[in-house]
Design a protein around this nucleic acid. Structure first.
Lengths: 132, 132, 132, 132
DNA sequence: GTGGTCTAGACCACA
DNA sequence: GTGGTCTAGACCACG
């Protein structure tokens, strides 16, 4: 696992993303235990609290579940599988978008701006549909 | 110009993005002067410091240039036109990605996470290519 | 007996609750002996310490009593019957509350927060009454 | 605001609940600013991080929104109003349930157990409906 | 041993 | 000044 402390993306989000990646890649399977808070923290030279925060986020999103005094486990079930498949497709599309932007010489920041714009645009549209 | 103070995107980035949009849309043409710092700040009820930061960012990216004591001007040339076209394509691709995510029931937050992940992935890869 | 290790409710409380349910349902009658610690622990694949804690809680609440070196016995009497009836009523009321919350689109987490709030509110009020 | 550090309910949840209570009671109105992190922390003699956590939870639940460098604000809109009304009803029902339990001599712990049981029961039922 | 919460204090980005 | 993130280290409940 690679952490970039200089990135403006919070470390705990970097951790959460990479754990999720590992799960999707099949490194950890359903109901399998993840590395303990302290073990992972020591491994990547990061404060246990920061790892805790990453795990919190994953648990909130329903990707893992925790058993106090036991450990953290990968949430299983169809939901997870379906989500995984859908996300793979989205990531593939996003990758194309990002590459198109990079080859056109756009800065990462500019690409992010375009993304945020697109996202908020879609949100306000779906909101409008809801109201109608 | 519309500012959304509830968004987690910094206001200065929102301003920079909208000025860029205006330039691409032809509202401001090459070597034309942009609204003065104070004028724009007063217009959108925002701290002048914040507008300053937006202008800084645009200048750093080479989209505008400043004449000391005179004002800020749009940098012209083919680059701007080419960039505009490229961005349109990227936005189109991003829109597809976002829609795919939404129709799969992913939360905006989740889509953003996937985007940030994809972006950082591409960055580290192009970095690796550069080193080689 | 069914234990849900994914639940955030401690396992020992899950055990205690289900034994109490069994008593109320008449599975164990007054002054009848409950399954031994080790037997129950083996049955539900749980650490004996955990079962011990459940039994402790039940004894503290006066629902069972222990005979040293012999076993654990159901405390009998009118109290148990009365309590059983009262609990049925409470569950009925709680069920209405939960259903109202769910049909209003509240998340389970949110409903739990409201419950904890209500409970602590009632506690501080009865405390105040006690002091007066 | 009253905090009970001895309670087993986490302090940050106590804070979140009381802020929510204040909002529902009209102490803070839509788009009004809440007390700053540090101010509130100093007021109730608690670490700023703990208050932060409470605010995080409220923001995640869509009850408040934060503006970096500005402050925390009450989220407005119909959604909030509708939610507020629904929750009031639920709290009223819960209060009846809790009082019924208390007057029957049930311990708070036992009432909580009954609640968790009821909640999980409703959840598994609605899940079953979804699968069908 | 595990996860969950809390404190003390620091640095950063933003307005 | 604000909120957001991070570290260091502590104590607790649980199994």
């Amino acid at each position: 696992m690679i952490i970039d402390p200089k990135s403006h993306v919070p470390i705990y989000k970097q951790i959460a993303a990479q754990i999720l990646d590992a799960i999707d890649a099949g490194v950890y399977r359903a109901d399998e235990m993840l590395p303990s808070l302290r073990a992972l923290a020591a491994d990547i030279r990061v404060n246990p609290n920061t790892v805790q925060r990453a795990y919190d986020e994953l648990e909130r999103e329903g990707i893992v579940y925790s058993k106090r005094g036991v450990g953290l486990f990968v949430a299983g079930g169809r939901t997870a599988a379906a989500r995984g498949a859908a996300e793979k497709k989205v990531v593939k599309l996003l990758r194309e978008s990002v590459l198109a932007g990079q080859s056109a010489g756009l800065t990462p920041d500019r690409i992010r701006t375009l993304f945020e714009y697109t996202l908020s645009e879609s949100l306000s549209q779906s909101e409008r549909r809801t109201r109608t």
